[in-house]
Design a protein around this nucleic acid. Structure first.
Length: 818
DNA sequence: ATCTCCCGCCATATG
DNA sequence: CATATGGCGGGAGAT
């Protein structure tokens, strides 16, 4: 169905083709508005181009880039020249590209400075713009709407906008990120991926249960537009709250980037999420298509702003269009993290409670009344697991339960503290920044007066130094040793994204013989093959879990102490039988995961106030890689037998360790530890560690574990050489360059830090499994009573990791630039 | 064929 | 009511 107008336009084009120099032809679409329009001639096009790249352009630097980067312009110019040369006619009509929203946006942006002086505001008159840029008004709206969503412009009145430039961008992005986190986009993304996954795996299957209620009842499908407090949006009346679809969509789209790690979002996923929010599960094809179209529009504008760029994500399934965030990294949403330069806003005062253990734990829970902290989708799983545990604990307080109790407490602790904290504060940017900060060979130097709180963390090692720094923590009571392997990101060997390992929460199905309701579903979805392929973007198993009341968190620590202390874990230690079959089922894993953050509970730093945050950030820079608060799960050998699924999975991302890195590890870790231990006062790390251990019940309340626990570097007998194969990696090809990017998409935390937790079983028989059966080696304890978990290089130079580590093969994913 | 996404109709909002 | 906005989806150029 062609409308008259359309036909007119078409005919016009035809005419133009035949009569290149025909003057009479004017832009028909809007005869009235479009003034004695320019004829469609090469000249007019040229003029247009020139105007786009002319001196009129303000920020030359960017403009320059623009003209350089936008090959289209050049191309067009070239074409035009040809045209002018009398080449056949309109081979190159005002090609579609020349009219692209992206180019138009460039032209639009060129009219205004990125950072207009606050003194003189520039106003935008749509009429002028449309006229000068020779575009239909409609197009300008598209651009303006997106800009509005970023608060780069705001509407004053009809036809009238104010240009803010990028001044507000940092704040806007920060706000968007925050909202994005609150909206649990990470989880939603995971869910979508999960569905995809199940879809292809399962003929059709029952997808009812777990996807029935996408998210908690507390979903926010509101069509809310994120406003910026400071940013004036005068003309309240003008600022109708309705119909902001494009704006809202734009914001949400941006949010997706800001919350995901890696910051790559495929159109498909974005569209689904944006749709899903309004109507749950609306597999409407046309709606989807429309959404995609809109996203392209938005993406074009965002691209012009250089906030994103197009890439392609290649999976087994094929190439899918996606976009990668290339804009500024957004600081953690917590109010006062001031990194000198960029802070534009004044930071509000900070809390000042005395950090006792209790306080600490409380402090870690930002939201008391309301549940605000972000949770990785996988956390939901974990939550469920915890719930199960709790149930068991409450119902049957018997020995087997005890273990669960401690585990429960531990998980709870992690879940509610570190994770949330980590999630809310950690950013890819930070990570990278940290990587950059730590010099390749020197242990992080402590800034003299600058950052007192930034004490040497336990076993901190510069990322570039060692790959693994083992820390063995003797368990006072049970005698079980826990080894925490922190795996600094191998930035040096890998790339910007260099996650090491990931800890993944696993639903504890079949623990102590009790069948988990999810276990079935879980098994169903996982297949070694499938996981291997899809590892990267694996969605967590079931996300149906609901948030639990926070009440629990408050008391958990206390209860934790009581219970844990009351539990004689020694009893639990038994000889572990080598049973494989039970482990087979454990091959089920959930690719999604998160890192266990290393949070530091700084003591008595009320005075630090705003510094606190800063210190936290800073310390993270150096310690994050090897924070003591890594998941250490007391798991008696006996337990292992019956437990099908360990509490955590460790996902190795790129485990190809350079031979030297291993060698270096011990040394580094030592030095690090030593340095950290020198301080008389317990450093944040150790205190945090103690805190955690006590809560877990691994040590009595009074006992303190020295900052540098007995470290032992043990030669590791490892296997699973194919880890590297199974581990997921993302290749991002930018242009011709291909990078080895580790992506752990699950969760957004991935890629930053990794930690390997090895559970040491004192009495476990030594037995090494076949390398290939990586997933089946979970928690296999090869070492004998005296065997220490370790990492070693194989003859072939490949590093191997063994014992008690869980490997989750990552699906290979490739991201390539066009 | 698929990916992009321009074009412009037309429902609504605004003044 | 005249315009300003902007949702929406057909369908055509790009690849």
């Amino acid at each position: 169905l062609k409308t008259p107008l359309k036909q007119a336009a078409t005919s016009q084009l035809v005419l133009t083709e035949r009569q290149p120099d025909c003057q009479p032809l004017t832009t028909p679409p809007k005869p009235k508005e479009t003034p004695p329009a320019d004829p469609w001639t090469p000249t007019s096009n040229l003029k247009m181009l020139i105007s786009a790249a002319s001196p009129e352009i303000r920020s030359r630097e960017q403009r320059r880039q623009l003209s350089d980067s936008s090959s289209e312009v050049l191309q067009t110019k070239h074409c035009l020249q040809e045209h002018l040369l009398g080449d056949e006619y309109e081979k190159s009509q005002p090609s579609r590209k020349e009219k692209s929203l992206g180019l138009l946006c460039h032209k639009f942006l060129a009219r205004y400075p990125d950072y207009p002086s606050p003194s003189q505001k520039s106003y935008i008159c749509l009429d002028e713009v449309t006229e000068e840029l020779h575009v239909e008004r409609r197009r300008i709206y598209d651009i303006v709407n997106v800009l509005e969503s970023l608060h780069m412009v705001s509407r004053l009145a009809r036809n009238r906008y104010v240009w803010h430039g990028r001044h507000n961008l940092p704040q806007t992005l920060q706000a968007l990120k925050k909202v994005g986190e609150e909206n649990k986009y990470i989880q939603q993304i995971q869910m979508i991926k999960k569905r995809e996954y199940e879809h292809e795996f399962d003929p059709e299957g029952e997808r009812n249960e777990d996807m029935a209620s996408p998210f908690g009842s507390s979903e926010q499908s509101e069509m809310s537009f994120v406003e910026l407090p400071g940013v004036e949006f005068r003309a309240a009346s003008v600022n109708g709250r309705k119909y902001k679809s494009l704006r809202v969509m734009s914001q949400k789209f941006v949010m997706l980037f800001l919350v995901s790690t890696p910051q790559i979002v495929s159109l498909e996923v974005a569209a689904k999420i944006l749709i899903g929010e309004d109507q749950l599960e609306d597999l409407d094809k046309s709606k989807f298509k429309t959404k995609i179209r809109r996203l392209y529009d938005i993406a074009n504008v965002l691209s012009s702003l250089k906030l994103i760029k197009k890439v392609h994500v290649t999976e087994e399934r094929g190439r899918k269009p996606a976009f990668k965030w290339t804009g500024p990294e957004v600081l953690p949403n917590t109010q006062d993290i001031k990194l000198e330069a960029t802070s534009t806003t004044c930071s509000p005062p900070v809390s000042e409670s005395i950090p006792s253990k209790e306080q600490c734990s409380k402090a870690l829970f930002p939201s008391k009344g309301k549940q605000n902290f972000t949770r990785h989708s996988s956390l939901i799983k974990l939550v469920k697991s915890i719930e199960n545990d709790r149930r068991k604990i409450q119902s049957a307080p018997t020995s087997p339960v005890k273990i669960n109790a401690s585990r429960y407490l531990f998980l709870t602790f992690l879940l509610e503290t570190s994770f949330s904290l980590f999630l809310s504060h950690m950013t890819t940017e930070e990570m990278q920044m940290k990587c950059a900060l730590s010099s390749p060979e020197a242990v992080p130097k402590s800034e003299p007066s600058q950052q007192p709180a930034l004490s040497q963390p336990l076993g901190v090692c510069p990322a570039s130094h060692s790959s693994v720094s083992p820390v063995i923590l003797p368990h006072p009571q049970s005698g079980v040793s826990y080894a925490i392997y922190l795996h600094p990101s191998q930035a040096h060997t890998v790339t910007t994204y260099s996650p090491g390992f990931m800890l993944q929460p696993l639903p504890c199905a079949n623990i102590t013989g009790i069948k988990s309701n999810n276990s079935k579903a879980l098994n169903k979805v996982t297949t070694e093959e499938g996981d291997t392929q899809r590892g990267t973007e694996e969605p967590p198993k079931s996300l149906a879990a609901e948030e639990r009341p926070d009440r629990k968190s408050e008391t958990s620590s206390q209860r934790c102490l009581k219970r844990s202390q009351a539990l004689p874990e020694n009893n639990l230690i038994k000889r572990r039988k080598t049973d494989e079959e039970s482990l087979d089922t454990s091959s089920t894993f959930f690719p999604s995961g998160y890192l266990i953050p290393l949070t530091h509970c700084t003591h008595g730093n009320k005075a630090e106030g705003s510094n606190k945050e800063k210190a936290g950030v800073c310390s993270l820079q150096h310690t994050a890689y090897s924070s003591p608060i890594t998941g250490v799960i007391p798991m008696p050998a006996s337990e292992l037998k019956t437990v099908n699924i360990p509490a955590f999975h460790i996902t190795p991302l790129n485990i190809m360790l350079s031979p030297n890195s291993i060698a270096a590890a011990p040394v580094l870790s030592n030095s690090c530890l030593n340095s950290s231990s020198t301080s008389s006062a317990p450093n944040p790390s150790s205190s945090a560690l103690n805190f955690m251990l006590q809560h877990i019940g691994l040590i009595p309340a009074g006992v303190q574990v020295p900052a540098n626990p007995v470290l032992q570097h043990v030669p590791v007998s490892s296997q699973s050489e194919n880890i590297s194969h199974s581990s997921g990696s993302t290749n991002v090809q930018e242009g011709k360059v291909s990078k080895n990017i580790l992506q752990l998409d699950h969760g957004g935390l991935s890629g930053k830090y990794g930690a390997v937790i090895l559970l040491q079983q004192p009495s476990a028989p030594k037995e090494l499994q076949e390398p290939q059966a990586v997933t089946e080696n979970f928690f296999r304890t090869p070492g004998g009573p005296n065997t220490e978990p370790s990492l070693s290089a194989n003859s072939d130079g490949t590093q191997r990791i063994s014992q008690g580590t869980l490997y989750i093969p990552q699906r290979k994913l490739e991201v390539s630039e066009d």
